[in-house]
Design a binder for these strands. Structure first.
Lengths: 222, 222, 222, 222
DNA sequence: GATGAATGAGGGTTCATTCAT
DNA sequence: AATGAATGAACCCTCATTCAT
């Protein structure tokens, strides 16, 4: 935990350093980022960085950890969705849209790209950042898990393992989303988002919708 | 294509440089890798690198391009699978196992991690490396697409868009695979592979199996 | 003025760097000089140079500018000469002697040689170093101009344009002086100096002495 | 003498190298010039340079020596001038104009700048290149010396030492010419040339015109 | 005689880091 | 707590030069 829990130095300077460092690390990677430039960008002496953080790696870890927490706290899905059986497909598609936007959020994507490469070089990142550097957003996934469980209890869905199903839905969104955007390097158009969300929701419901009687008469979307 | 297609210098030295460079770039990233060390590792003078490649960047691009091509050429799936209606679930699970092994192949994963961060910094990579998301294996995916199409034609599956369905299957495997392994940083156990493959195959067939009459009697789920 | 006017770093180190740099640049030229060697000669780390100066070029410009100012400040002619009509030829010859010594001063010559080649490559030098031809000494020339003007006012000389005449006198000294010494590369003997000064003074007075009545009886020549 | 008198290799390639080298050395100085770039500019392998010349210095010396000879051979003054007493001032001014153009010739100036700095570093240049690297043009000066001697014999001028007088005339032209042009870095306008030539001729004749009877009534040009 | 390939040394510059204030 | 000054190592790259073809 180190630097993050025992901040030394004036908090304002510390925050300026972390902001500048986050941008630098995201832009240039760990080795590519320069403490000189970070200090200049933060309007701070270089030594001040060393007063706040143990060294370059310490700064890096603190920045990533803070950003992860912050991003996760900001990502949520419209809580009114998936609460009733009607509009099931529409609601799930809407959830897909929102999840996509959360998962492909610019800052989160940049962070994820950073983690993906640096975790292999800095193993402590894995421990600090909720595993794997995968960069999914725990809160939103937990929320979806809960909804799926409730819908199953309500007889609307037939999901044996809600956590697994939630992960599958996220996978159906995230994987093509990352492929299409080069891991968040470019943005998706509204049409692309719509298409991905619809496709995932359709596929998902085709497998997990509970009423087999409806199945034969189901007019599955294209 | 540049340096990769107009090799100058003795091919042996060139190959040694590329091998050493691939390892260095994978290990330390683009900025982290040192040409000095690459030269030493390749048993070559530093200037020799510049005799073969224009730049550090030129070397990087050549290395990545070559590795991509090579990896893709080596990755294939057992061609006898998914050729008959019987053993559908077993075969699809086997395909999932093999795809997982291909997709999480150590070298391919390392390359993917490299690309994920560096594409943002070297846009040429996207153009050269086909999709830049870096890291699915075109040949294997094409193979699966073809199999799904044929099975649909044969009435075994009900897949409207085989390409999309193949991508979905890959997503169901790759996304959790990458999460669990920190993008290929650690290896999956056989049990984990089995579980992922089974889960994906089950989910996939639940949605795409063509005979609804079988649906009610299906003993699905792990 | 740039680096020269905003000195950062301990002035002592800065001065040591500039001294070492002046010697190196004079000895080896701009491209020939090595910052490594300058740092060693100055007893300073190489990075310290970059702490004080923006660049190799920045260092070069600062060094040349400072040296020019310093050299000019040190060069003067015996102020008691050319103040009375008597001893006109002797005084002018003495002025010639002293001007020669000033103009062929070792440091000034070295600086001039440096400027002559580098001005073409670093145009800023021309602006910074007053005329860039590099190497006459403004203060001494101004002094002579004033003396010639006063002697003309006193009726001793018949000089229409004192500034032009001063330049001519300097030309009569400098040009052969530079030729004979390979632009200050070797030193003149006292005899050579005497000969040049006498020749220039004789020639000059032959043209500019005011009393034509004296002309016929003049015992000129060496 | 070395390379210049015992040329090895195909003369065409040798000439291409020398031409490229002359430009490079003039542009960038001895240390600044790169054999790599010279080879490319000459359309020749680098090793070919070493087949023709001993090393970088050998190439440099050969280039400078050849250029000096060539430039001198091309510089001459209108031989019909200064042959009769009439039009003395006009002729001498015309000689001044032509000498200025010769002395400030672009190539000669560039060569002179090169020599001025490099002679100190390569003493053999002084021996090979007619002393001092001063860069006057022997043939033209000899011509003027002869003319002044003949005019003195003819009673038109009163020059005791024609060689010294010729040098003085050259000094009166060259020195301001080099100052004004930053040693040949920029070109003089016709007006500037005219002014310099007139000034030198006027000054020269004021001192050396033989007829003192004319002196009092002389209306010396401004 | 001419080449392409290779070398080792050194170029200028910037790095992460520490000391003194 | 914060700074400016300084460090030594390492960075990528290019140098003049030689070897083998």
């Amino acid at each position: 935990m180190g630097e993050a829990t025992v901040p030394r130095g004036l908090p304002a300077k510390r925050a300026a350093v972390m902001a500048a460092a986050e941008e630098a690390f995201i832009q240039d990677g760990f080795s590519g980022a320069s403490l000189d430039k970070i200090a200049v960008a933060a309007g701070v002496s270089k030594q001040t960085i060393y007063n706040h953080f143990s060294d370059k790696r310490g700064l890096f870890l603190a920045v990533v950890e803070a950003a992860r927490i912050e991003v996760d706290a900001q990502s949520s899905v419209d809580d009114s969705l998936l609460r009733t059986p009607d509009r099931l497909e529409e609601d799930l598609t809407a959830v897909g849209r929102q999840l996509l936007q959360v998962l492909l959020d610019e800052r989160l994507s940049a962070l994820r790209r950073l983690l993906i490469t640096e975790v292999a070089r800095h193993p402590e990142l894995g421990d600090r950042c909720g595993g794997s550097g995968g960069g999914t957003v725990p809160r939103a996934v937990e929320w979806l898990t809960l909804r799926l469980a409730l819908l199953t209890v309500g007889g609307v869905l037939a999901v044996e393992d809600p956590e697994e199903a939630a992960s599958q839905f996220v996978a159906l969104l995230s994987f093509p989303g990352q492929q299409l955007t080069s891991y968040g390097t470019r943005r998706l158009s509204d049409e692309e988002i719509e298409k991905l969300a619809t496709s995932a929701a359709t596929f998902f419901l085709r497998a997990y919708r509970s009423a087999p009687v409806d199945y034969a008469s189901d007019t599955r979307g294209a």
